[in-house]
């Protein structure tokens, strides 16, 4: 069962009210927005000035009319966005997509974030009420590791890097496989977001253990509202639009 969404989709102007660099390539940005409510997993499509398409970003939080996003500089659009001054007005659409189903209160929750997928776990960490939260963050190296301190407020944080420069050397899924051994399958719920190979690897583990697991998929988007079918994901129930039927899917539904 999916959680109830925030208020209906709207198209509005968002004004950059604060911008800080978490590291050389990652920006935390606050946008002044009209009344927007959201559920963890939902996202915003934000104008990148001079570019044809809006960029999708997870909504991290909305407090007192200020919506927060955290993004990595990847290509041209995120570069442009990172260079904008506070006060800049951007066209936006939000809240979009479905959201993560919330766990029962007696469960232990695993949040697994790979690369910029870590951002997607942040609103969940803030809103989940559970027996415990264990966050696993995977990054290429220590310099690209983001948000670890913010997650520490909510529980244990385990780290993995590809080159071993921080935390365990290896993948976040290896770390998860090790950490989950302590639990019976009905005791925990797993949430994950990251590159497709990481999620595919997780799908293998989940299939064996039969745990409840929800993932957020990252596809290229044009409209963001379900109209253009540019962002489809193959599932057992046919092609699904990740912007409208997703981005959150039960991991068992996805055909990799």
């Amino acid at each position: 069962m999916k959680m109830k969404h925030g208020n209906p989709i709207s198209n509005f102007k968002a004004t950059i009210s604060a911008k800080t660099f978490l590291n050389a390539g990652t920006v935390s940005m606050f946008l002044k927005v009209p009344d927007v409510s959201f559920a963890p997993g939902q996202f915003i499509m934000l104008e990148a000035p001079g570019h044809t398409l809006k960029r999708p970003f997870v909504i991290c939080s909305v407090k007192e009319g200020r919506l927060r996003i955290v993004f990595s500089i990847r290509g041209k659009g995120t570069k442009t966005l990172s260079e904008l001054d506070t006060g800049t007005e951007l066209d936006a659409i939000a809240p979009l997509g479905n959201s993560f189903p919330m766990p029962a209160k007696d469960k232990t929750v695993f949040l697994i974030g790979g690369g910029l997928g870590t951002v997607t776990m942040l609103p969940l960490a803030g809103q989940i009420k559970a027996a415990g939260i264990i966050t696993i963050i995977g990054a290429k190296n220590g310099d690209e590791l983001i948000l670890a301190d913010e997650f520490k407020k909510y529980g244990e944080v385990l780290i993995s890097t590809d080159d071993g420069s921080c935390g365990k050397k290896g993948s976040s899924i290896d770390v998860f496989n090790e950490a989950v051994k302590k639990f019976k399958k009905n005791e925990c719920v797993v949430y994950a977001c990251g590159p497709n190979p990481m999620l595919r690897c997780l799908a293998g583990t989940i299939k064996k253990t039969g745990m409840e697991c929800h993932v957020s998929m990252e596809e290229r988007m044009a409209c963001g509202v379900g109209a253009c079918v540019c962002c489809v994901v193959k599932t057992e129930k046919g092609l699904k639009r990740s912007c409208k039927d997703g981005p959150v899917f039960n991991i068992g539904e996805i055909i990799w």
Partner: peptide, 10 residues
């Protein structure tokens, strides 16, 4: 069902 991904490129 249409084409495989990616379906859009800026």
């Amino acid at each position: 069902d249409g084409n495989p991904m990616p379906r859009i490129w800026e």
